[in-house]
């Protein structure tokens, strides 16, 4: 889980072009959207692309986004659950 979260942070910083954020600055439980890291709806779509590219996971319903993408930890948990489920 720790490894996965570290990888995710680096991927998020790269995919979302967060030039002024270092991966290690993102807290495991820090909210990613709004007041947290300040991501928006387009960033959420880019994270959906990221999950598809790096983890082969498809999210068809964007309504699921806010729940899954709350923090790096919730995304990691989603990936883990999804991959074991396969």
């Amino acid at each position: 889980m720790e490894k996965l979260m570290a990888a995710l942070k680096a991927q998020i910083v790269e995919q979302l072009n967060l030039q002024e954020v270092k991966p290690e600055d993102i807290g495991d439980d820090q909210p990613l959207f709004k007041d947290g890291l300040g991501l928006d709806s387009i960033d959420a779509l880019e994270i959906i692309v990221l999950l598809q590219q790096h983890y082969g996971i498809r999210i068809a319903n964007p309504e699921q986004g806010p729940e899954i993408f709350h923090s790096v930890r919730t995304i990691a948990e989603f990936i883990t659950a999804h991959q074991t489920a396969k």
């Binding site: 387009i42 960033d43 779509l45 880019e46 692309v49 598809q52």
Partner: peptide
Amino acid sequence: KDIASPALFV
């Protein structure tokens, strides 16, 4: 060609 980028489409 790969996966269309929403951030670019915007």
